[in-house]
């Protein structure tokens, strides 16, 4: 419902990664492209898995910037994408908001771990994030999203983040979180974040969950494991800070293994 206008003066940058099974039990990366603030590096993998690191070569996104990341794991590929550091949203020189769009595609019998470091909503920033995931029926996924509202002791910026997951064409999760100054009323109240400054989600998709979904479970009243339709499960967590958020998400993930 909210639209961000991207100023012509902002930086437009995109990164693309394509992972393919090499036929010998490994994964190759025929496409590994980034530009400007979105540099991508292949790092040492393990076994069949290729590893890619997003390296922030500039600060941002700043107001007016528009970043796009596209990752596709083809049939049989195993890919893990992380980031070298947290992403820090900052205000730009003008009033325009920034956009960060992530598109993930995972084919049958492929596995993608999308586990970037946290996104920090710096004071005065206005960032609109969309993460859109398309999975084949036999795809596997681990997706982690962590949002931290403000640096230590700082008022957060405005952050809107929408996460959409489709399996075999049908939408199993569509969620938007809006927080920070100017967000619709009550975002920090007892229904929303209640003063917590870190919020995160894990989406875990495994074909075997279709027959045996994980049981719903609550951790310390700050996190919940929730089976979704299809073969997906969601973990949602809130915590006072990024460190405790990570601990909660890790603990919840461990119960799914």
């Amino acid at each position: 419902m909210d639209r961000v206008t991207t100023a012509p003066g902002g930086v437009r940058a995109s990164a693309r990664v394509l992972a393919r099974c090499d036929g010998r039990g490994g994964t190759v990366l025929p496409v590994l492209e980034g530009e400007g603030p979105l540099a991508v590096r292949r790092t040492r993998g393990s076994g069949a898995e290729a590893r890619v690191m997003l390296v922030g070569a500039m600060s941002g996104p700043l107001g007016g910037d528009h970043f796009t990341v596209g990752v596709h794991a083809e049939r049989g590929a195993r890919l893990r994408v992380g980031s070298a550091a947290a992403t820090l949203a900052l205000p730009g020189q003008d009033e325009a908001g920034a956009r960060y769009d992530v598109r993930l595609t995972v084919d049958d019998d492929a596995e993608l771990c999308w586990v970037p470091e946290q996104l920090i909503s710096g004071g005065g920033s206005d960032l609109h994030v969309t993460t859109s995931v398309d999975l084949a029926a036999g795809a596997r996924l681990l997706l982690r999203e962590e949002q931290v509202l403000g640096r230590a002791g700082e008022e957060p910026g405005r952050l809107t983040s929408r996460l959409t997951v489709r399996i075999d064409g049908s939408c199993v999760l569509d969620q938007e979180l809006a927080c920070g100054p100017g967000a619709p009323g009550g975002w920090d109240g007892p229904a929303g974040l209640a003063g917590h400054r870190a919020v995160g989600q894990l989406v875990v998709v495994r074909p075997q969950f279709g027959d045996e979904p994980p049981a719903a479970r609550v951790f310390e009243e700050g996190a919940a494991v929730m089976p979704l339709g299809g073969s997906a499960a969601l973990v949602t967590a809130v915590a006072p800070d990024g460190l405790r958020l990570r601990r909660l998400l890790d603990a919840a993930l461990a119960t799914l293994d």
């Binding site: 419902m1 929408r162 959409t164 569509d174 969620q175 938007e176 979180l177 809006a178 619709p184 009550g186 007892p190 229904a191 929303g192 974040l193 209640a194 919020v199 719903a216 479970r217 609550v218 009243e221 700050g222 996190a223 919940a224 929730m226 949602t236 967590a237 809130v238």
Partner: peptide, 18 residues
């Protein structure tokens, strides 16, 4: 359709059900 969500409504609902 909008997809606005409230994290503590979801987590609270699971805590309540348990």
């Amino acid at each position: 359709l909008p997809a606005r969500s409230a994290p503590l409504l979801e987590i609270g609902a699971e805590a309540h059900a348990a």
